[in-house]
Design a protein around this nucleic acid. Sequence first.
DNA 1: GCCCGGATGCCACAAATTACAACATAATTG
DNA 2: CAATTATGTTGTAATTTGTGGCATCCGGGC
Lengths: 257, 257
Amino acid sequence: MLAEERQRFILSTVNTRGSISIAEIKRKLKVSRETIRRDIVALADGQRLRKTHGGALSLEQSEPEMTVRQVTNAAGKRAIGRLSASLVPDGASVILASGTTVQAVANALMARRDLTVFTNNVVSCGKLMGRNGNRVHMLGGEVQPINGATLGRDTTAMLANYFADFVFIGAGAISPAGWLMDYTREEGELHSLMLQSARTAVVVADQGKFGRTAPVRVGNFEKVTYLVTDRKPEPEIATALAALPLEVLVADEEAGG
Amino acid sequence: MLAEERQRFILSTVNTRGSISIAEIKRKLKVSRETIRRDIVALADGQRLRKTHGGALSLEQSEPEMTVRQVTNAAGKRAIGRLSASLVPDGASVILASGTTVQAVANALMARRDLTVFTNNVVSCGKLMGRNGNRVHMLGGEVQPINGATLGRDTTAMLANYFADFVFIGAGAISPAGWLMDYTREEGELHSLMLQSARTAVVVADQGKFGRTAPVRVGNFEKVTYLVTDRKPEPEIATALAALPLEVLVADEEAGG
DNA sequence: GCCCGGATGCCACAAATTACAACATAATTG
DNA sequence: CAATTATGTTGTAATTTGTGGCATCCGGGC
């Protein structure tokens, strides 16, 4: 059996089943352990799989990684989530966008009861559904593997049928000129639509978002009631924001529980 | 079984069900108590779960009980999933309904590439997205906490825009008269609509579904091309099914890998 | 509160498995 | 045939897992 055949066998097994042990390959292919180990090393070198003690694992183990993804400035986002959630009473209707900061809001909202939730984020959906009498509506659309959020025409079409008490959206960036910005046009359009789909619109953005830019300017920023962050913005941005009818709320990491 | 696989098993069980006991892992994985304890210590070190007396708890104080439900006849459903997935080539478009048997199909479809998937099931969505170049579209609607499936007018409205190569739906029951039945009207209507939204319609139903009844009769059963099950139906039902233009496929638990 | 049996935690050591490197042998190529 | 590459073998170090002993914790009965 040729080396390439062996490696193809290993790779396909790993990819269909998620893992393989060296002992198993040895049984099936009748070659020495060392040869297999070398094959695995070669495949791992080419980033086709991940080598482990006694075997190999698939790289595309996309199942629970979504929720595991490292969150930068987790403490700040948790604080933002707590403060944001404190605006929402039991029984309210809430639209939740995607993004890790908004997920922090979803986390904090787990303490509320009888919410009606609309979200395009699979993770927030999982957190709030079946809990405390909440009703969760998932916005349809194509799911982005990166963040587990739906996007596209289906999403906006469904959203257009609803109007909630609150909407929480994140920001790709908040530019020095005080513009709300996102990285893709689709996301920006969804956020823009969301902002006019609730009585009280809230943008959550941790300190890292300020003073940066992103390719797409999001409309309807003037519809926003609160901007929740975890540090007072720089004077330049603060001035720009002062021109808007929004109130900036700064969350304290120490406060709350 | 590799160490990382064990740890992944422990973690996913803990996260879907909230807790796990060492005794239970020991029964299922057949490794020593110490090994499990070491796995749990390692996972706890990495802040992935919380160690307790005799087991471990999830950190995320939520997580749906969605997947909690014990799957009855798991082997049969796995076989049905394998056989069903064998109908689907790489690159096809597939509609997946909710239900544990259809989830078995989703599991088996993880080996395919470049699928376009439409599903109203959060679990199937998670399994297939971000994998092998698949594109997954989530059907919007109100999420049922029991099974993580969306349902309602939004779901049907979005589905109406699409037509796929294959559709896989489950069955609440298949009556002695050979009727396809479901437990709620909404689910029945969605299934009925799905059946006419694909070129090849497949109903998957394990042996426990036959000869029972459920409150709602599902229309368009005559649109079904294949009925995949894991045991030959009783003669009475077989006769009733023979009147329909469908082919019954019986999956063998032994076959396949 | 106290005692007790069983389960569990934790430690140290043994056994088994695996990794890695060095070298020998076989296969392939020019 | 020589050179090169691939594979097998062997020996040792490192890692992982199992085992047994003993301390500790838990729940129940008194």
